[in-house]
Write a protein that binds this DNA or RNA. Structure first.
Lengths: 172, 172
DNA sequence: CTATCAATCGATAGCGATTTTCACTTAATT
DNA sequence: AATTAAGTGAAAATCGCTATCGATTGATAG
């Protein structure tokens, strides 16, 4: 490999980091709910715990399975509802911002995207510096890297204005 | 507009680029279909055209609406089918690799993801150099950038093995 | 140009993921 | 403990997408 002046650093998050992070988040959860006016229910605690102890990025169904060990009567609807609530409260994030419907792209060249977090509009983007990371079989842990798609979360002009006026209950 | 001290090398694809790209792709479409043994139907041509003339990244529903101007009798099922077919043939791409079900993440710090393109497993990743691009209200065209999520497409160890044995030959 | 066969298409039923509705708890506040 | 607002479970409704099945169309041989 030729030496690079700006060889970027990519690093998988360690198990220790995750463990410390999880403790901190769980310890503060009740306080933060109070601040935000959210009721602290056993379901919410269990779901956040399940989320934080999952190394992967679970679907509602997977969380449901996990949580039923502690809360056998919980319903799947509650899991969906709660995950959304946690996201809105900033206690969790959705990996898949654009998942309501599949979105297609006629551009088959390698490129990236800017996504408006409010209206979900997407624009193509060129960012050649990112592509250098994926020369011939770069690896990371057990993964062989193929290419990358940078998704830049942004607000478009229209949504910036709209968000400024009606910050409250607008659909996302 | 905003005083930029340093604009990173991020660039929206220009309309001219898109126009040239579209002409080239449409001109070659028939040839490439023949090479791949795909029938060239008016529906497929119309759908590819709709895809390439969409600056955004349309859903099946949006393509459906657009295509009906030329093909009023086309069905939504055909649009779904054709978009999938075009993706398999390498004539289009899906922006949303993980869209079958919403995936959640308990880690609310800014971070990135490695996604196995085969089993859709996701791992968290740290790459601080990317975050430098999103300091205090960086903009790109009409977008105010918030943060970015780099999605690295990869193959995990298990899937690499599985892919090596169970796949005959894969053309890129 | 036409016959033939296989691929593709349109309409609709079906399915899985998510959301909504509503009567009934439970949490937070007083 | 009582009041009130929020949250929950169960079931039904919705939404995006896929499977099925005749009808139609494209490609090729004649």
């Amino acid at each position: 490999m030729p030496p690079r002046t700006h060889e970027p650093r990519l690093q998988l998050l360690s198990e220790q980091w995750r463990e410390r992070y999880r403790s901190r988040r769980m310890a503060d959860f009740v306080t933060r709910c109070r601040e935000k006016g959210l009721a602290v229910t056993p379901q919410r605690v269990a779901i956040l715990k399940a989320l934080l102890t999952s190394g992967d990025h679970p679907s509602a169904e997977e969380i449901y399975t996990k949580v039923r060990a502690e809360q056998p009567m919980i319903s799947l609807a509650t899991v969906h509802r709660t995950l959304e609530t946690l996201c809105e409260a900033g206690e969790a994030g959705k990996v898949t911002l654009l998942h309501d419907a599949a979105r297609y792209d006629g551009n088959t060249d390698s490129h990236h995207h800017v996504v408006c977090i409010r209206c979900h509009r997407v624009c193509d983007l060129e960012a050649p510096q990112f592509d250098r990371l994926f020369k011939d079989g770069a690896t990371l842990g057990e993964f062989v890297l193929l290419d990358c798609s940078v998704e830049i979360r942004a607000l478009c002009k229209r949504c910036r204005k709209a968000a400024a006026t009606s910050m409250h209950h607008r659909d996302s």
